[in-house]
């Protein structure tokens, strides 16, 4: 079954890097969002059952997106992909309900490892 996948990052280059890192042949329908406001809208309308989320973004950051997902009990699996590598940032996003945290820059091996670990492929 095709998975609605949301890639939410303010950088065009980062969105491309995530897209290039997706496992070959993975059956996904990709939606892109350039900030948290666009991202949460996409999740609310069912375009992000799986979400790859950046943290530092304009309009609304990744922490706020995670808070809204939690508050509104939106059904999605969120994996944070961020350059904010403080241990406390990782702890915070996991507490807010993110499944895991991947350190930027993303690549095929890192993403595959996390997706495989959680049985998401």
């Amino acid at each position: 079954m095709t998975i609605p996948l949301l890639i939410c990052d303010d950088s065009n280059m980062a969105r491309k890097q995530v897209t290039k890192s997706l496992p070959d042949g993975w059956d996904v329908d990709i939606t892109y969002a350039a900030n948290g406001v666009e991202g949460i809208d996409a999740i609310r309308t069912g375009k992000g059952e799986m979400v790859f989320l950046d943290l530092t973004m304009p309009e609304m950051d990744g922490y706020q997106v995670l808070e809204l997902v939690k508050q509104e009990a939106l059904k999605c699996v969120v994996i944070v992909i961020s350059g904010d590598v403080q241990p406390a940032a990782r702890e915070r996003v996991l507490q807010l309900g993110a499944l895991d945290f991947i350190r930027k820059p993303i690549n095929k091996e890192k993403l595959f490892g996390v997706l495989e670990m959680y049985g998401l492929l």
Binding site: S11, M57, V85
Partner: peptide, 28 residues
């Protein structure tokens, strides 16, 4: 350049967090 700096500044943020024992708020 912004994305490259975003990744580099994140590592510097981690270093500052370790130096100050505080949470570093990063910006774009």
């Amino acid at each position: 350049l912004q994305e490259v700096c975003n990744v580099a500044m994140g590592v510097a943020g981690e270093s500052l967090a370790a130096f100050t024992h505080a949470f570093v708020e990063l910006s774009i």
